[in-house]
Design a binder for these strands. Structure first.
Length: 311
DNA sequence: TTCCAGGGGTAGA
DNA sequence: TCTACCCATGGA
C-alpha cells in the first residue's frame, strides 16, 4: 500500500494522551489504541469511497504540538482526500474547542479540579455523528465488554474493508445498513433490543447524511438539540447527555450506574440518595457540568487505584 | 441460577 | 411528572 504523511498542529494547551484515554472511545473499532507508541489508528472510509488506515501520533511541544498522521492507502491520495483526513483528525481530537473557561473554573473550584492541567479534558469522538450515536446506544444497559462486542460485530459485518487487509474495516455507513432488511440486519449482529433503534437511525441518516446538521451550529440552543435527541427512539436522558458531550456541549450529566456509584461512594456515604441532590453537586459549573463530573470521576478512580483499593 | 450492566419505551396513575 | 414493568444479551 502507498503511504502518505500528513502533518497537523494543535495549539497549546493540548494533551494528546489524555484525549485518547479520557473515555473508552479509543478502544471501540474501527479505532485502535497502540500503547507502545502512544498512538491510535483508525480505518476510515472517505467521502470518495476510498478506505484508508490512518495512524495518529503526537510530538512534544510548548506552544504548538505537532501531530503526525500516517495514511496507508491504495492508489493516489487526492488533495480532497488529504483535506478530509485533516478534518477527521481535527474533529476527533476537538482541536478547535476552546476550554479556557473550564480551566479557569477548575482553578477556582479547589480539589480535585485544581489538579486539572490545561490541555486535558478533551474526550475523543468519532468523525461522524451517526457513528457516535450508534456507539452511545451500544453503551446503554450493558457492560463495557458488551459495548465493544456489539461495535466490533457492526464493523465486521457491515464495514467496508481496507484493500489488501480485508480483516480491517471502517465503521459501516448508514446507507449500507439501511439497504438491508431489518430481519437480515438483526440476524447478523447481536444487538438485542437495540437493533431496531440502530436500524431506524441508519435509515434516517441513510436518507439524508446531514439530517442533524443543526446540531453542529453553535447558534442552536442546547435545549433544542436535547429535545430533538430525546425524540429519537433509543435515546433517553443518559444517551442525550452523552451525545451532547460528543457535540462539545457539556451542560448535561449522563445519569447512569457509573454516575450513581460515584455519588454513593464520594458524596452520600454509601447510601441511597435523591437524584436532584446528586445533580446539585455540579450545579455551579454551568455549561461545563459534564467535564466537571467526568474529571471528578477520573480522579476518584485514580486515587482509589493509587491506594490499592478498587471502586 | 440469578442479577444487572456507561438505560429506554410504554402504559397507567 | 412519576412509577412499574418489560425489553435482548452476555458477563459475573
Amino acid at each position: 500500500m502507498a503511504e502518505t504523511e500528513i502533518h497537523l498542529q494543535a495549539a497549546a494547551p493540548f494533551d494528546f494522551w489524555s484525549t485518547l484515554q479520557a473515555h473508552g472511545w479509543v478502544d471501540l473499532l474501527p479505532n485502535e489504541y497502540h500503547p507502545e507508541s502512544n498512538s491510535f489508528s483508525r480505518i476510515e472510509q472517505l467521502a470518495s469511497g476510498k478506505v484508508v488506515r490512518m495512524g495518529v501520533s503526537a510530538e512534544q511541544g510548548d506552544e504548538i504540538i505537532p501531530l503526525n498522521v500516517l495514511v496507508n492507502h491504495g492508489g493516489r491520495l487526492s488533495s480532497k482526500d488529504r483535506s478530509e483526513i485533516e478534518d477527521v483528525v481535527r474533529h476527533m481530537l476537538r482541536l478547535d474547542e476552546d476550554l479556557s473557561e473550564f480551566y479557569r473554573l477548575c482553578r477556582q473550584n479547589g480539589f480535585p479540579w485544581s489538579q486539572m492541567k490545561p490541555g486535558k479534558g478533551r474526550l475523543l469522538r468519532s468523525p461522524g455523528l451517526f457513528e457516535d450515536m450508534v456507539k452511545v446506544i451500544c453503551t446503554t444497559n450493558v457492560q463495557w465488554g458488551g459495548t465493544r462486542r456489539m461495535v466490533r460485530e457492526l464493523v465486521e459485518q457491515f464495514g467496508e474493508p481496507l484493500p489488501l487487509y480485508p480483516e480491517l474495516k471502517a465503521f459501516p455507513r448508514a446507507q449500507t445498513i439501511a439497504a438491508l432488511t431489518f430481519d437480515e440486519f438483526q440476524s447478523r449482529v447481536r444487538l438485542g433490543y437495540r437493533a431496531a433503534y440502530i436500524y431506524q437511525l441508519a435509515r434516517v441518516f441513510g436518507e439524508k447524511s446531514n439530517c442533524y446538521a443543526q446540531f453542529f451550529n453553535q447558534q442552536t440552543p442546547t435545549e433544542e438539540i436535547k429535545k430533538e435527541l430525546l425524540a429519537i427512539k433509543g435515546i433517553g436522558n443518559y444517551a442525550a447527555a452523552s451525545i451532547l458531550m460528543l457535540l462539545g456541549r457539556y451542560d448535561e450529566i449522563p445519569v447512569d450506574s457509573v454516575f450513581q456509584q460515584l455519588m454513593r461512594q464520594k458524596y452520600f456515604h454509601q447510601e441511597d440518595f435523591d437524584l436532584k441532590e446528586a445533580l446539585a453537586v455540579y450545579e455551579n459549573w454551568g455549561r461545563w457540568k459534564y467535564l466537571a463530573y467526568w474529571f471528578d470521576l477520573l480522579t476518584f478512580h485514580q486515587a482509589a487505584e493509587d491506594e490499592g483499593t478498587s471502586v
